[in-house]
Simulated assay, not measured.
Amino acid sequence: MAWNWTLPDFRYDASALEPFEQQFLVSSGEILGAVHHVSQPEREQLRIELLSEEAIQTSAIEVEILDRLSVQSSLRRHLGRDPDSYPTKPREQGVAEMMVDVYSSFADPVAHETLFRWHRMLLSHDRQLDTIGTYRHHAEAMQIVSDRLDRPTIHFEAPPSARVKPEMERYAAWFNKTGPGVAEPLPALTRAGLSHLYFESIHPFEDGNGRLGRALAEKSLAQNIGQPTLISLAFTIEKERKAYYDQLEQHQKTLDVTEWLVWFAEVVLKAQQVTLDRVGFFISKVHFYDRHKDQLNERQAKAIARMFREGPGGFEGGLSAENYIKITGTSRAAATRDLQDMVEKGALNRTGERRHTRYWLNLDQGIENLS
C-alpha cells in the first residue's frame, strides 16, 4: 500500500473550493457581527459555552465523555474569571487548558513546542502513555487497525518514528508559510483542510492526534480571519463522525485531495451555521432572563436552567410534567401549578393535551430580532 506520506505533494482542484471560500468569509462576518450584539460580560460567558462545547465534542469524537460542568469550571479558571465551586477533574482541566491556549495564541506560528505544550495539557493525566509532550519514538509501526487481532484490517500506517521529527519540521514550515500575509498564502478552507489531513497523515504522537489535528485546523481558520473563530467545528464533525473517518482513510491513500477539501469545507460552513444558531440562542437566553427575572420560584428557575442546558434543540419532544417532577423533585400538583404559571407569564409555550402535553421555552428570534 502506498500511503500518502510516501508520495510527492498533495494536489487538488482550487476552482472547486472557490464558492466555499467565499461563503466562509461571508459567514465569518455574520458571526462576528452577531457576537458584537452581546455585552462584554455576556460575551465572556458565550465564549465559555462555545469553548466548552468544542472541548466536549472533540473528545466525544474519540469516544471520550467529559463532565460539562467540570470543563466550564476549568475554562473559567484558565480565562482568569472567578471559578465556581464545581470540582475540576484532571481530564477536563487538561482539555480546557488546551482550548484556551489554542484560542489565545491563534496568531503565533506553529513550532514543535506548540504541539508539545498542547499534548502535555491534553494528556498529562494519562499514566499509561510512555511519551507525553514529545513525538512518538517506539520502534513498531504506528497503525490504525480494526477487526480481529490475528487478522487485522490496516486502515492507515503512519511514517516510522525515526521520520516523525523531520516530517514535522516540514509540516511546521508549510503551515507557517501558507498563512495570510506570508510567502505562499492559501485560502482559509483550503489551508485548514490540508493542515488537518497533513497532520493526521504524519500521526506524530502516541495518542491525541485527532484532537490536536482539529485544534490546528481551528488555529489555521483563526489566522485566516484574524481572530479566534469559536466555530462549532468539532461539534459538527462529531455529528458526521463515520464520514469523517471514511474521508481521512480514503485520502491517506491518495494525493488528489479535492474530495476531502470539499467535504471539509462543507463541514466548516455547517459549523458556522451551528455557531450562528448558538449565538442567537444565547442572545435569546439573555433576553428571556431579562423579561422573567424575579418572576420564577426556585423550582421553576431550576427547570428553566435545565432546559437551557439542552441547547437550541431543547428537550427531545419537549418538556413533560414527568420531566419537571424529576428535575425539581416536587409533587405532581405543584408541577401542574408551576407549569401553568409559566405558560401564563409567557415563559413557556404549551402544546398537546393530557399525557401528550409538552412545554417549550418561549424565546425571541435571537439574532434576527436584532436586525
Rank of each mutant, 00 (worst) to 15 (best):
T6C: 02
D9Q: 11
A16K: 14
L17I: 10
E18M: 11
Q22A: 15
Q22V: 12
Q23L: 15
S27A: 11
S28I: 00
G29I: 00
L32P: 00
H37Y: 15
H37R: 13
V38A: 08
S39F: 09
Q40E: 14
P41M: 00
R47S: 10
L50F: 09
L50M: 12
E54V: 12
A55K: 01
A60E: 13
E62S: 12
E62Y: 07
V63C: 09
V63I: 14
D67R: 07
R68L: 15
R68K: 13
L69P: 06
V71A: 05
G80K: 01
P83G: 06
P87W: 00
P87F: 01
P90W: 03
P90L: 14
P90C: 04
D101R: 08
F106Y: 14
V110A: 15
A111F: 14
H112M: 06
L115V: 10
F116L: 03
W118N: 04
H119Y: 11
R120F: 01
R120T: 14
L122A: 09
L122M: 15
L123N: 08
H125C: 05
H125D: 15
D126T: 00
D126V: 02
L129C: 01
D130N: 12
T131D: 12
G133V: 03
R136T: 05
H137T: 13
E140Q: 12
E140R: 13
L149E: 07
L149M: 12
I154T: 13
P159N: 08
A162T: 07
R163E: 14
R163P: 04
P166Y: 07
P166D: 09
E167C: 13
E169C: 08
R170L: 13
W174H: 11
F175N: 03
L186F: 04
L189W: 10
F199K: 04
F199G: 03
E200T: 06
I202N: 03
P204W: 00
D207C: 08
G208F: 05
N209V: 05
R211K: 07
L212P: 06
A217Q: 04
E218R: 13
A222T: 08
N224H: 13
I225Q: 11
T229G: 08
T229M: 08
L230V: 04
K239F: 00
R241M: 04
Y245K: 11
E249W: 05
D256A: 13
F264M: 01
E266Y: 00
L269D: 02
K270V: 10
Q272K: 06
Q272W: 02
L276E: 00
R278Q: 15
I283T: 06
I283Y: 05
I283L: 15
F288E: 05
E298D: 10
R299H: 12
A301R: 12
K302Q: 15
A303K: 06
F308G: 05
E316Y: 10
G317K: 07
G318D: 08
E322Y: 09
I327Y: 03
T328V: 09
G329S: 11
T336F: 07
M342C: 02
E344C: 03
A347I: 02
L348M: 02
R350W: 02
E353W: 07
R354H: 11
R355E: 14
L361E: 00
D364Q: 09
I367C: 12
